[in-house]
Design a protein around this nucleic acid. Structure first.
Length: 924
RNA sequence: GGUCGAAUGGUGGAAUGGUAGACACGAAGGACUUAAAAUCCUUUGGCCGUUGAGGCUGUGUGGGUUCGAGUCCCACUUCGACUACCA
């Protein structure tokens, strides 16, 4: 029997499917383990070889845990709502559901060929009504809850209403958009509209007038994590700031818990750090600055309270509410002109244009500590969305303030001893304070850190300000002016937003004729006929963003068919949370924050039992493309090989990597590739055409996309799986390079040859030799350790070594080979399954086998080689029995002939015997 | 600008502070073959040397800790990832 990957893989994939080998049920007799991949967005391009990297790694881990006796939940699904399908729909009129369904079918086909152990009965799609019912449900719950900062969790809005009725805002501890004060009488006097508006200030899902990232080209708003460097992540279109009335989620209320609980998850330090930066906790102080000859008080936020004596001016964000309050009549026109100018610039333009700009309001503020009068400016370098939208400017110790001060010729007062501020500001938080003396407070001579603390104490005592922790994390904007997303379960009764009853969910996405905004500029749902409740109240026209459906999907896999709840108590208490989550780092600030927020909210409601959704996270590296080039001599149809190109004037041209093998171009395939190359001529080196190469993003336009289907067809899924792991550490980014794949394929053939020679079965029941046992037990130890640590590349090497050793030993012992197959099963399930049955005669699937344990006894060396070194320099080797005591080893080392050469006339200072490897003799 | 990470042969990459370069690719030579493919064997960091000896050097650069450093510490250089007017 020869190794025939096509036949074997097809047969076993069929078998697993028919027997539902990987179906998972709750089983209280076994410990659970939940392994999850970040589910893919099914794009039209299909999978390339980079996508399965993480899936293969998690599949290996799942199979390993299963062999270790765990009940493993390993599901897969599709993040099916998204912009590309909708953009495609706009261009072609094709319903996004149709394209999405087709893409999913293609993905499924590709995934199936790689032999994953998913329980497909648990598949979910975010666009399916059975699923998004629970996305809508969670939204309603968020609407009906507020965040109580007193007890640190979400509480029903009904409680809040009761409190308002009895005590007004007195004694309320609630996360809110702005701090309100009213009495019970005032509350009770409000009409329904006013009450609704007031409650929006507290709800976790709320309608608010917020500055949003508006992308005119996409016709929708975007969340902060969907925008980078002033352009949309999808499409790269410019984004501008716009004030809009939108649904938002009060994610910011959870900022402290999102930071604190990072200590409880086993994620890489870098991704935790990224989240910490994104949430952006900063400890500082809020301080009041009064405007001269006015009763206006402006609140600013600063982390450098110590620098308050160096404040020489103040700056307001153009959108700040203070601007209108302080601007003097003479400056109104100038300020208005400046604000208009800023308004018409996109975020991108504001970022690119680093030029300092701003305008004087004409007002002066009083420094609360020094009593000095300082001018108040407006400038776009101050952001409305962070802190209070107003700052005290300390040009000596902040580079942005410095640039502004130089531009407007404002004074710069250094506050730290030795700081040279003639060329630039001194931003470091170190040194001794100077020039910092005022009524009641003297900071001179203090270290910066002391000074910050002293100032904070002082302003709290005097009531000038208070200590405050600020977070950069902002509320998530939850409305999208798009068609292909979850409809909001919201209708408007006399303009007041109301939630549909849970019993009427899901609110299904309606059919529309065109996937574009209406002529009056309403979102696409405005085209839907009868988009209203049975009573005739209009339904919400926005849809939810992409992250809505992906925020709680891991919970749904636990109980995918449940029509009563998102997940039953029983299923949740058994599966709890994800033990191992595998996916890319690109979700660090989006999905991974939203999911954690969503989970914490459901945790507060008692719907889920774990406060963190993903206990351990592994970030697989990105697979880049490896492009190949041919070099055309200018104005000819002649191509010169890479090594000879310097002698010619050439143009590099991308060539399809699929007609290049080990950088050698297949000439006939190249001529057939494109009509214009049909009669191409070549200048060869050593009879071959060598292509150049470069590492680039894997994309169609660079002709460097490698489809896993092609690899599976040629080498088999087992080879693909092993090779992707062999390529390097899972967490590292690396280019895809097919050059080494033959080695892995050769390994499988060698493995096969341990079992069969032609049609002869070689497996016997002989007692394995000590060497063979040592080889296999070494492997058991190595692979077990590697899998736990996610170092699969060295495991693959270990398999190769073991198979080579067993081949050399002519070991065909059933006992040894059975262990080998079980170890290999997670990596190469098809060939393992085949050999398990046909050669080893087992009648259970290899998934039901037990993971072998290594026995130290077999690993014992009969003799140990020591490197003997003098003063750390290795000089010669000695071989001694493994159990020789330390003193004997020293004696043997010193009695060696070579030692005399080194010891001649020298004194031994000390002898170090390191167990296992080295005898170090220090001489003088 | 900030944060995190990386730097080892022609290439991908191994090395709990203990003989650097495992394993694989590629390359060179050889066996089998009419030939090719496949398979197998040998060599393969660099330099010097050679009878099959042996020696020197070597993990981005410069210091340090240590009997001993690719590994730990400090500084620098280069590259990558993420983030960015966050006061």
């Amino acid at each position: 029997m020869e190794y025939n990957h096509r036949e074997i893989e097809q047969r076993w994939q069929q078998h697993w499917k028919e027997n539902k080998t990987y179906k998972t049920e709750i089983d209280g007799s076994k410990p659970k383990y939940y392994v999850l991949d970040m589910f893919p967005y099914p794009s039209g391009a299909g999978l390339h070889v980079g996508h399965p990297l993480g899936y293969i790694a998690s599949d290996i881990f799942s199979r390993y845990k299963r062999l270790r006796g765990f009940n493993v939940l390993h599901p897969m699904g599709y993040d099916a709502y998204g912009l590309p399908a909708e953009q495609y729909a706009i261009q072609t009129g094709q319903h996004p559901e149709v394209t999405t369904r087709e893409n999913i079918a293609r993905y499924r086909q590709q995934l199936d060929r790689i032999g994953f152990c998913y329980d497909w009965d648990r598949e979910i799609r975010t666009c399916s009504p059975d699923y998004y019912k629970w996305t809508q449900w969670a939204f309603i719950e968020m609407f009906n809850h507020y965040y109580d900062t007193g007890c640190g969790k979400a509480m029903p809005v009904a409680n809040l209403v009761k409190h308002f009725e009895e005590n007004g805002t007195e004694g309320i501890h609630a996360a809110c958009t702005k701090v309100l004060h009213f009495t019970a009488t005032e509350w009770n006097a409000m009409d329904a509209r006013q009450k609704s508006d007031t409650l929006m200030n507290y709800r976790i899902a709320y309608l608010g007038n917020t500055m949003v990232n508006w992308c005119p080209k996409l016709g929708t708003v975007l969340a902060n994590d969907e925008v980078s460097e002033g352009v949309s992540i999808r499409g790269g279109y410019p984004v501008e700031q716009k004030l809009m009335y939108q649904w938002c989620l009060r994610v910011s209320a959870y900022a402290p818990r999102l930071i604190d609980d990072l200590n409880e998850v086993a994620w890489s330090d870098s991704i935790k750090e990224t989240q910490r930066n994104w949430i952006g906790r900063s400890e500082g102080a809020e301080m009041q600055f009064r405007i001269k000859d006015s009763d206006v008080e402006m609140t600013i936020f600063t982390t450098r309270a110590d620098t308050v004596f160096g404040v020489t001016f103040m700056v307001l964000a153009p959108e700040s509410k203070y601007v209108d309050m302080v601007t003097i009549p003479e400056q109104v026109d100038a300020v208005k002109a400046y604000r208009d100018e800023i308004k018409h610039k996109t975020e991108r333009e504001r970022l690119i244009d680093k030029k300092v700009s701003g305008v004087f309001t004409g007002a002066y503020a009083i420094n609360p500590l020094s009593g000095k009068e300082i001018p108040v400016y407006v400038s776009d370098y101050v952001l409305a969305g962070y802190g209070t939208g107003a700052i005290m400017a300390v040009p000596a110790h902040d580079s942005r303030d410095y640039a502004f001060a130089r531009h407007f010729n404002l004074p710069v007062i250094p506050l730290i001893e030795g700081a040279d501020v003639s060329e630039g500001s001194f931003d470091a938080k170190e040194g001794k304070m100077i020039n910092s003396k005022g009524p009641g407070l003297d900071l001179d001579g203090m270290e910066v850190k002391e000074a910050i603390a002293a100032t904070k104490r002082f302003i709290e005592e005097k009531g000038i300000g208070k200590v405050k922790v600020n977070y950069r994390l902002r509320d998530a904007i939850f409305s999208r002016q798009r068609y292909w997303g979850e409809p909001f379960p919201v209708y408007y009764k006399d303009g007041i937003p109301c939630m549909l009853p849970i019993s009427e969910l899901p609110l299904q996405l309606p059919e529309i004729d065109k996937y574009l905004p209406t002529e009056t500029g309403e979102p696409p749902l405005g085209r839907a006929i009868n988009w209203q409740t049975p009573e005739g109240y209009p339904l919400e026209l926005n849809t939810m963003p992409g992250f809505a459906g992906s925020s709680a999907y891991y919970l749904r896999y636990m109980d995918p068919g449940n029509s009563e709840e998102l997940v039953s108590k029983e299923a949740n208490n058994y599966w709890r949370n994800v033990d191992l989550y595998v996916g890319g780092t690109e979700h660090a600030t989006g999905h991974l924050i939203y999911s954690r927020f969503w989970n914490k909210f459901l945790f507060d409601l008692g719907k889920v039992c774990e406060k963190e959704p993903f206990a351990k996270l592994i970030n697989q590296g990105m697979i880049q493309g490896r492009s190949n080039f041919v070099y055309r001599i200018k104005d000819t149809n002649t191509f010169v090989s890479h090594g000879l190109k310097k002698d010619y004037d050439v143009t590099p041209i991308h060539v399809d990597v699929n007609i290049v093998s080990n950088d050698i171009l297949d000439l006939d395939a190249f001529r057939a590739w494109r009509p214009e190359y049909a009669d191409a001529e070549f200048v060869l080196e050593d009879g071959k055409y060598v292509c150049g190469h470069a590492v680039e993003k894997m994309s169609k336009s660079m002709f460097n996309v490698v489809n896993p289907d092609d690899i599976v067809e040629r080498y088999g899924a087992d080879t693909l799986r092993l090779y992707e792991m062999f390529l390097g550490p899972v967490e590292q980014s690396k280019p895809w390079d097919t050059n080494g794949i033959d080695g892995v394929n050769r390994f499988i053939k060698k493995l096969w040859n341990l079992f069969y020679k032609g049609d002869t079965l070689l497996v016997n029941d002989d007692k394995p030799s000590a060497e063979a046992l040592k080889s296999i037990h070494k492997l058991i130890k190595k692979v077990t350790g590697d899998i736990e640590n996610f170092s699969y590349n060295t495991s693959v090497s270990a398999f190769m070594i073991c198979v080579n050793e067993l081949t050399a030993l002519k070991c065909h012992s059933r006992e040894v080979l059975a262990d080998l197959i079980v170890l290999l099963a997670p990596f190469a399930p098809h060939v393992s399954e085949e050999l398990w049955h046909s050669a080893l005669g087992q009648n259970t699937t290899v998934c039901d086998a037990r993971w072998p344990e290594w026995n130290e006894q077999y690993l014992k060396e009969s003799s140990v080689n020591y490197a003997v070194s003098f003063n750390g320099k290795a000089r010669f080797n000695i071989s001694v029995p493994a159990d020789m005591p330390k003193e004997e080893v020293e004696k043997t080392a010193l009695s060696d002939e070579a030692a005399s050469k080194w010891l001649d006339g020298k004194t031994i200072v000390k002898i170090i015997v390191v167990p296992g490897k080295i005898v170090n003799i220090v001489i003088k």
